[in-house]
Simulated assay, not measured.
Amino acid sequence: MDRRDTDVATELGIYDEAERWFVHLLEPDCPADARAAFERWLAADPAHAAAYRDIEQLWKQSKDALKDPAVMAAASRALLREPSVRSPKRWLIPTFAVGLAALLALAIVPRWLAPPADPAGIAYTTAAGQQQAVKLADGSSILLDTDSKVVVRYSERTRRVDLLHGQAQFTVQGNHAWPFVVHAGSGTVTAVGTQFQVRLDDQATDVALLKGKLAIAAQSPDGATQDASLVAGQALTYDQSGHITPVHPIDLQQAQGWTQGKLFVHDWRLPALIAEMNRYSDTKLQIGDPSLQDVHISGVFRTNDQQTLLLLLQQGWPIHARRISATQIELLRNR
Rank of each mutant, 00 (worst) to 15 (best):
D282H: 13
A204G: 00
G99M: 15
M1V: 06
Q307I: 02
A232F: 07
L100M: 15
K284W: 07
F301I: 03
Q314W: 06
A50D: 13
L12P: 00
P28S: 01
P271Q: 02
H266E: 12
L331R: 14
E82I: 01
P31W: 04
S241N: 14
D16W: 13
A34C: 04
F96L: 12
A204S: 13
Q306F: 03
Q256G: 10
A75V: 02
V300N: 11
Q226L: 14
D5L: 15
S140C: 04
G233L: 10
Q256D: 04
K211M: 07
R111Y: 03
A133E: 15
V98H: 06
A102S: 13
Q254P: 10
P115E: 04
K60Q: 10
H266N: 15
L144E: 10
L292H: 14
K63G: 06
W91L: 10
N334K: 09
W317H: 15
L209H: 12
G185K: 11
D282P: 03
A74S: 10
G129E: 05
L79P: 00
P249H: 07
T327L: 02
T303H: 00
G288L: 12
R199Q: 11
L144H: 02
V295N: 06
Q61L: 14
Q169E: 11
Q307D: 15
S298E: 03
H320F: 13
P221M: 02
Q307T: 09
Q306P: 09
L209V: 09
E19S: 13
E11R: 15
H296T: 09
S325L: 11
A218V: 08
L263Q: 08
D16T: 07
Q173F: 06
A232R: 11
L103V: 02
A177Y: 14
G13H: 14
N304D: 10
K60E: 12
W268I: 01
F96K: 10
L214I: 05
L106I: 01
Q195K: 13
Q173W: 02
V182H: 10
G139T: 04
R77Y: 02
D222A: 11
D5N: 12
K211F: 05
W41N: 02
Y52Q: 05
N304L: 01
P94S: 08
Y52R: 08
A228W: 03
V23M: 07
E17M: 07
A117C: 00
K213R: 15
L309F: 05
D305Y: 05
D239W: 10
T225Y: 01
S325I: 04
V182I: 14
A215W: 02
R3A: 15
G99F: 09
A114H: 08
G212S: 05
T194W: 08
N304W: 02
V151F: 04
A177H: 14
A184C: 09
L143P: 04
S148N: 01
S148E: 02
F96C: 00
V152A: 00
H243A: 12
Q315S: 14
G99T: 02
T188D: 12
E56K: 10
D64K: 13
G185F: 07
Y280S: 07
A275T: 08
D145M: 10
Q240V: 09
N175V: 00
L113F: 06
W258Q: 07
A65W: 05
R335V: 03
G288K: 12
S84T: 13
